[in-house]
Amino acid sequence: MEVKNDVIVCLSYNNIVVRHFYLETILSLESKSMSPSRNITAMVSEVNKLFGSKSEKGWIDKHMEKHEWLVKNKQQLTKKYGIDVSDYEVRSFFVTDEDMLTPHLRKMNLPLPFITRYDLEKDGYKTLYK
């Protein structure tokens, strides 16, 4: 856990949970090192990783389980970090190296927005509150 000014950052594997004091928000970021698909085989692989298959959950579904856990277990976060987050909003994002084509091709609403590391570096927190 790292504390800087008004933000606490907790890192584990490819997950980042940020608690922003001033905005009263918990930001859950799923970060993956992915580049856009360059051919149909790569696109099929990307779809399977993101959305899963009949036998295995994809990264999006797995992250949404983490999101729901954060929403339902704010009291555990309060107990662990000693900061009352019971009224905080939980927002989730999927962060990739580059803008991905697959989320734009799906004819469904995604449960969380996709953003790029470039957007975060360029616009910082503004990217997460657009």
Rank of each mutant, 00 (worst) to 15 (best):
T102M: 03
A42Y: 08
K72L: 15
D61V: 10
W59T: 01
W59S: 00
G52C: 06
P111R: 08
R117N: 01
W69I: 13
E65G: 05
V3E: 01
Y118A: 05
I115M: 03
N39G: 02
D119E: 11
K62D: 01
A42H: 09
K80G: 04
S12F: 12
W59R: 13
D97E: 07
H104V: 01
F21R: 11
Y129T: 15
L70A: 04
N5W: 15
K107H: 09
R117W: 04
T127Q: 00
L77A: 00
T25F: 06
E89Y: 13
L29R: 02
M64C: 10
W59K: 12
Y88M: 12
Y13H: 14
A42G: 02
E65Y: 13
L50M: 02
T102K: 07
P111D: 03
Y88L: 12
L77M: 07
K79Q: 13
T116G: 07
V95I: 11
V44M: 02
S37I: 10
E68R: 15
H20M: 09
Y88W: 09
Y125W: 13
D87I: 11
T102C: 03
S35F: 12
D97V: 06
G58N: 04
Y81N: 03
S92R: 06
K80W: 10
V85S: 04
K130S: 06
G124A: 08
V44E: 06
E56Q: 14
D6S: 12
I115E: 06
A42C: 02
E2A: 09
R38A: 03
Q75D: 11
G52A: 04
T41A: 09
Y129F: 15
D99N: 09
D87N: 14
Y22A: 10
T116V: 05
E121W: 11
Y22G: 07
E68S: 12
L29G: 04
V9G: 00
S45T: 11
N48A: 02
R19N: 04
N73E: 08
L11P: 00
D6T: 15
I26C: 05
E89D: 05
S53R: 13
N15P: 00
I16L: 07
D61P: 02
R117F: 06
E68H: 14
M100G: 06
N48H: 10
R106P: 00
S33Y: 13
N48Q: 08
K57H: 14
L105F: 06
H67D: 01
V18A: 01
K54Q: 12
L27G: 03
T96N: 02
S12P: 00
Y118K: 15
T41K: 14
N15C: 03
K4V: 14
K126D: 04
L23N: 04
K107I: 05
W69D: 01
M64G: 03
N15M: 07
R106Y: 08
V85N: 01
G82W: 13
L101G: 00
L11C: 08
S37G: 06
Y13L: 14
S31K: 11
N109W: 11
K66A: 06
V47M: 09
F94W: 04
E56C: 11
K72T: 10
S53A: 01
F94V: 00
K130Q: 07
S12D: 07
R91E: 05
F93M: 00
E89G: 00
S35E: 10
